[in-house]
Design a protein around this nucleic acid. Structure first.
Length: 420
RNA sequence: GCGGCCUUAGCUCAGUGGUAGAGCAGCGGGCUUUUAACCCGUCGGUCGUCGGUUCGACCCCGACAGGCCGCACCA
């Protein structure tokens, strides 16, 4: 018998239960549900077993289970009928359990530190908080066009404005994009906002959340990935984006400070994967070069800092260099795990950034941030200096479990519909 | 969205230009036993779909669908 992931042998003897009941038992099939009562014993071979005195039928399995020895390998069936995968493949069950423990750990750690868990709208009249294309839908009763949120950011900031000084939300974001080993159109995020804090505080929080979660879930801070050991214990190094790009490509983005010269430098350096002439702005090309040439190399935990202003319309400008913002992205295993900044709390500056985004949109950036007047109005009531952090839960779970595909840690990954 | 590869029984997989096989599961019976797999018997597939080539296709060609990998988009 199997239940809740554990297996236990039952031992049914004809002379103990009687021939009629014994024959009844023989009608039971693999996959059926039954109950049994009896004394726990060890057989001659030492197998823990229930010496059954009474038993009964609970429910029927009409369809046969996948082969218990060969298992279920067909990936399509594993994802489309995840219940079979969970039933038959212990490692799939283990991943589901680990993911749940990762989420529980994040929630516990934040609660312990006095953060308040909140829920904000998934259906939003204006999307925002990230560089992405949204899903759209309609509310019939109000004749209202709505977007499925691409981030929680602008609503959580409203709560900071409302005086809830430490808030977080764990939930789902929706981005109308492709699927890959690191991407799914709906994915789980943690976003945290803390008043009177900045992005450096968010680094400390990030290090604590990840290393402590690994300790709670795995018992240690080292994880294996593609044969390499990753050490999650803090401190993590802080590297500037420009420095990392120069190190990996030889391109100095401070010298190549406009789209044409950066394009020329990129073509000359022959950065693999960067397509000629398909990016509408300098900032997006910087981002492209970074993600192609640098990101895969960031296997050990690393905070990348000093992001260009144009890539970060919701982040506060750096005090030292107004072309940069107080922002970091945390990378582990060659993946972006988190994004954080000192939040932009100046409504005038925020308006300028929105206008710049609108211009980027006109120039062909389909993911440019729309202007959100309601959010600007909220900012005008005054927002304290605030640090914010967004952390990808699926990706963090990939790191903790060593999984190589997001869909392995996502119980029901996105697939095309099947018409049979 | 683009390119490459894949799709044979419930599951895991063989296979050949002449109209398909194994193991497990299932079903019928036997055995009260073990550590995936006991014994005997038995059922089971219009070989993803639709077209084409051919005397004949599961096998060759094309389209379509789904999946995987890569690219693009991106967290």
């Amino acid at each position: 018998m199997q239940g809740d992931g554990a297996r236990l042998q039952i031992w049914l003897k004809r002379d103990q239960v009687g021939p009629e009941r014994y024959d009844e038992f023989k009608l039971y099939e693999t996959g059926d549900f039954m109950w049994a009562r009896g004394v726990l014993i060890r057989t001659k071979k030492g197998e823990l077993s229930v010496d059954v005195s009474d038993f009964g039928f609970l429910s029927k399995a009409y369809r046969p289970l996948p082969d218990k020895w060969a298992g279920l390998h067909d990936v399509e069936t594993r994802y489309r009928q995840r219940y079979l995968d969970l039933l038959v493949n212990p490692q799939s069950r283990e991943l589901a359990v680990t993911r749940s423990r990762v989420v529980a750990s994040l929630r516990d750690l934040l609660n312990e530190r006095g953060y308040l868990e909140v829920e904000t709208p998934i259906l939003q009249p204006i999307y925002g908080g990230a560089h992405a294309r949204p899903f759209t839908t309609t509310h019939h009763a109000y004749g209202q066009n709505l977007y499925l949120r691409i981030s929680f950011e602008l609503y959580l900031k409203r709560l900071i404005i409302g005086g809830l000084d430490r808030v977080y939300e764990i939930g789902r974001d929706f981005r109308n994009e492709g699927v890959s080993k690191k991407h799914n159109p709906e994915f789980s995020m943690l976003e945290v906002y803390q008043a009177y804090a900045d992005y450096r505080d968010m680094m400390d929080l990030m290090e604590a959340l990840v290393s402590e979660t690994a300790t709670r879930v795995l018992g240690g801070t080292q994880v294996e990935r593609d044969g390499e050991t990753i050490e999650l214990a803090p401190p993590w190094p802080r590297r500037s984006m420009a420095e990392l790009i120069e190190e990996n490509t030889g391109i100095n983005i401070e010298l190549a400070a406009d789209l044409e010269s950066l394009r020329a430098a990129t073509d000359e350096a022959g950065v693999e994967g960067v397509e000629p002439g398909d990016v509408p702005s300098w900032a997006l090309l910087v981002d492209d070069v970074f993600s192609k040439a640098v990101e895969p190399t960031l296997v050990q935990p690393c905070f990348v800092v000093d992001y260009p202003l144009d890539l970060s319309p919701l982040a506060k400008k750096s005090a030292e260099n107004p072309q940069l913002v107080e922002r970091f992205e945390a990378f582990i295993g060659g993946m972006e795990i988190a994004n954080a900044f000192s939040e932009l709390n100046d409504p005038d500056d925020q308006r300028e950034r929105f206008l710049a985004q609108a211009e980027a949109g006109r120039l062909g950036d389909a993911e440019a941030h729309p202007i959100d007047e309601e959010f600007l109005r909220a900012l005008e009531y005054g927002m304290p200096p605030t640090g914010g952090l967004g952390l990808g839960i699926g990706r963090l779970t990939m790191i903790v479990t060593g999984a190589s595909h997001l869909r392995e840690v996502k119980i029901f990954p996105h697939l095309r519909p099947r018409d049979d």
